[in-house]
Nucleic acid binder design. Structure first.
Lengths: 165, 165
DNA sequence: CTTGGAATGTCAACAAAGCTGACGTATTGT
DNA sequence: ACAATACGTCAGCTTTGTTGACATTCCAAG
C-alpha cells in the first residue's frame, strides 16, 4: 500500500472530515448555549449578560478593560450590558484602589445567584456530554479546542485557567 | 486510597474541569468563526449568509423548510438572508418538481465561489487544529461535541453526515 | 505643577440578525 | 370543496454588535 499521506494516517484531515467537524461545532454550540438562553429569555437579559456575569464570577475584581479583552466587544457594547447589571444590583462596580481610573467588578449576592443558576444548567449539559464521551475523549476535545483558538484568546484562556490552580 | 468517586477516575467531571470546558468552547468558537467573519466583513454579508451558503452547498436542492430546521431560525429571518443571496445571484431558487409549493435551493457558480472561499478559510483553521491535536484527540473532540447537541440537532447532523457517505 | 495620554463613561446613530404576528398565494391532499 | 402545507412578505420590535465624538478623571513624565 503506497504511503500517499506521508507515512501517517491522515484520513481525519480529509475535507469531508473537516466539514463534519465544522458542522459538529455549529450544532454543538447551539446546544451549549441553549439552556442558559432558555433561562434568560423572559428575564430582561440575554447571552451578553451571561458572558459578563460568568467572567466576573470567574475573576472577581476584574477591570472593565480586562473584561473587554476577554469578551472581544467594544466598550460601548459591554457598557450597556454592565450598566443594566449594576443598576439591577447584580454587579458591584468599585473604584480601583491603586488606580482610581479603573473599576473593579464584583457580583452581588443576587448576581451570584443568577450566575449559579446559569452555570448549573450549562455545567449539567457539559457534565452529561463528558460522562457520555469519557475521560480520553474529553482530553481530545480540550486539545482540539485549544488549538482552534486565536493566539490572544488562548492566552486569555490559560490566564484564567491557571489562576484557578 | 478511598474510592470516593465510584471506582472510576471522574476528575474530569469536577466543576472546575467543566468550567474550563465551557470557557474552551467559548474561546474556540470565536476562533472558529473569525476567518469567515473577516472575509465577509466588507461584503454586504454576515455570518447568517455564511450558514445558509454552507448548508446549501452541503445539500444542494434542499428546501427552505429543511434549511429552516437545520438553522433553527424563523422563516422571516432566513428569508431576508435568502432573498439577498438570490437577488445577488449567489443562490438559485427553483420551484419544486414534484411539489410545486417547495423551492429547491442551489448555489450558482458565483455562490460556489464564495462558499469555497469561506470554506477554505474555515477548513484551514480546522485542519491546523486537527493536525496539532492528532487523530485520537479529533475522535474525542467529535464524541464530546455530538454528546453536547440537542437530540433534534444531532439527528440533523447525522442526516447530513450520512448523506455524504 | 502642568500637561499629555490612558481608562472610563456616555450620547447618538446605525447595522445585523434574531423574534412575533398577520396576511396572501399557490399547491396539495383528504 | 376545503383544510393544511410551503413559501413569501409587511410591519414592528429586541438584542447585541458597530463608529464616532466628547467629557471626566487620574497617573505620570517633563
Amino acid at each position: 500500500m503506497p504511503e500517499v499521506q506521508g507515512g501517517e494516517n491522515l484520513l481525519f484531515l480529509t475535507d469531508e472530515q473537516l466539514r463534519q467537524g465544522i458542522e459538529a461545532m455549529f450544532f454543538a454550540y447551539r446546544g451549549f448555549t441553549a439552556d442558559p438562553d432558555r433561562i434568560l429569555s423572559g428575564m430582561a437579559y440575554g447571552r451578553a449578560h451571561h458572558r459578563a456575569v460568568h467572567f466576573i464570577a470567574r475573576a472577581p475584581g476584574t477591570t472593565v478593560n480586562n473584561l473587554l479583552n476577554i469578551l472581544g466587544v467594544t466598550k460601548q457594547s459591554l457598557n450597556r450590558v454592565l450598566r443594566t447589571l449594576v443598576d439591577d444590583g447584580l454587579v458591584d462596580s468599585r473604584v480601583g484602589k491603586s488606580d482610581k481610573r479603573e473599576r473593579n467588578l464584583y457580583l452581588t449576592d443576587e448576581g451570584m445567584e443568577l450566575e449559579r443558576k446559569l452555570s448549573d444548567a450549562q455545567r449539567a449539559r457539559m457534565r452529561a456530554a463528558y460522562r457520555a464521551a469519557g475521560p480520553e475523549a474529553v482530553s481530545g476535545f480540550r486539545q482540539v479546542l485549544e488549538a482552534m483558538m486565536d493566539t490572544e484568546m488562548r492566552r486569555q484562556y490559560y490566564k484564567i485557567r491557571d489562576a484557578k490552580s
